[in-house]
Design a protein around this nucleic acid. Structure first.
Lengths: 154, 154
DNA sequence: TTTATAAAAGATAAAAAGGTCTTAATATAT
DNA sequence: ATATATTAAGACCTTTTTATCTTTTATAAA
């Protein structure tokens, strides 16, 4: 019922890519890592895995970097989590009981269950772009620095 | 927004003590560890800390073990969590953002917040015995083995 | 008062998570 | 073609969490 730091980084940085799809530029690990304040070698590892999992795309070389294809843009946040943490982690009982369901619930099962459904639903049903658009439309800024000054340098 | 395994063990085993308050017998680490299927040296360490934190009580020697005084029985689940994990862990943003509140929310803030309030409320406002009674009255059995056969041996 | 029993204390070890570094591969621009 | 920028791959390191082991201390029963 909780995300690893790795998953969180992966979600935030993929949302970052989503926010910048319109820029039609590839973005390097370094830029993203600095923007969302994450250790860049660690993020690089995560990105390797996300590329393998076809969640994001990359090209090497000058002006290379990471980006989202049309196909990538249809992935959900849950796809990211699944790719990094697997799904077990999210389905575990809040109190760690091995058997925990409606017929044999842990003490907080009926508090946790609606929340879990709600958040998993959101993570499953909205694709990356919709998720990103919702953030923007609600004026909910991720605590990511604005990328534009970096681009301007070139 | 998530408990360590240590906290989970601590909660379950304290609830176990609560369920057996009426038996008026002290219970050893070994019995509890086997009942809730937790490594007993690890639980022993946790219990040391819970005793120091005055969440539970202990006596050494023959027929010694752990138990809840009247005062212990008034502690909340949140007291246990605070004693083992501290409170920070529960208050962290679901996506790991350093700044995340109503005025600068992360993408899932408004899903997570009501849940967090609900579960923290429950953990804060119910004391151990009330919590335990609720479990029993709802027929929600923890996946703890029944202790009675162990007692019968003596 | 001796002995058995159980927790306390503290050192140590193993596993998992998080993070870094180095080298290789590859795409692009010149 | 070559130099350069960038990801890919994989080995390695560090920290935190989880777990164990050994010795000491306290209690209570016989």
């Amino acid at each position: 019922m909780m995300l690893s730091r790795a998953s969180k980084y992966a979600i935030l940085s993929t949302l970052f890519l989503a926010e910048h799809v319109k820029d039609k530029k590839k973005i390097s690990v370094k830029v993203i890592a600095e923007s969302i304040d994450v250790p860049s070698p660690f993020l690089a590892k995560l990105f390797q895995q996300l590329v393998k999992g076809k969640i994001i795309s990359s090209t090497k070389g000058p002006n290379g970097g990471f980006y989202l294809t049309k196909s990538n843009q249809k992935k959900s946040v849950l796809d990211i989590i699944e790719n990094i943490d697997g799904l077990n982690r999210l389905n575990e009982c809040f109190l760690g009981l091995s058997e925990c369901d409606g017929s044999n619930p842990c003490p907080v099962h009926f508090i946790v269950e609606p929340f879990k459904n709600s958040i998993l639903g959101k993570f499953r049903d909205k694709n990356i772009m919709e998720f990103s658009e919702e953030i923007v439309s609600h004026g909910r800024k991720l605590s990511l620095k604005d990328l534009s000054p970096e681009f301007d340098k070139k």
